[in-house]
């Protein structure tokens, strides 16, 4: 099986970049994750993961969108690459496939009570 090997945080951030679509950069990813999951992730961890995902080819980036808050500095805006999209797809399919294989009683929460 061709593996994309996404870590948990990597998967989360990859999804967030997909959701944010054209507006994904460090701080916005941080905010989005906080809003969606309530998790507070360290900004430097997000940077590390974003850069790693770009190295792996799942993300593309370009500079742009300077604001006053940033002291006129540009953001590095990330977008999903084709590989990245495929990776999400595959992770999702794989997960669904495995989910379906769980015998039904495991879903029966009343089992055993």
């Amino acid at each position: 099986m061709k593996g994309y090997h996404l870590g948990e945080l990597e998967e989360l951030i990859l999804l967030t970049v997909g959701i944010l679509d054209q507006e994904a950069y460090g701080v916005s990813v941080l905010e989005e994750i906080k809003n969606q999951t309530g998790r507070k992730v360290n900004i430097s961890a997000i940077h590390t993961v974003l850069n790693r995902l770009e190295d792996k080819g799942f993300l593309k980036s370009e500079m742009g969108g300077a604001t006053e808050e940033r002291g006129g500095r540009r953001k590095r805006l990330f977008t999903l690459s084709a590989t990245g999209r495929a990776a999400i797809e595959e992770v999702k399919t794989l997960r669904n496939k495995m989910y379906d294989q769980i015998p039904p009683f495991a879903l029966d929460l009343s089992y055993g009570h």
């Binding site: 940077h47 808050e69 002291g71 500095r73």
Partner: peptide
């Protein structure tokens, strides 16, 4: 430097 410093400032 630019992206990191920018993000740090924003936060």
């Amino acid at each position: 430097l630019e992206q990191i410093q920018g993000d740090a400032y924003e936060i």
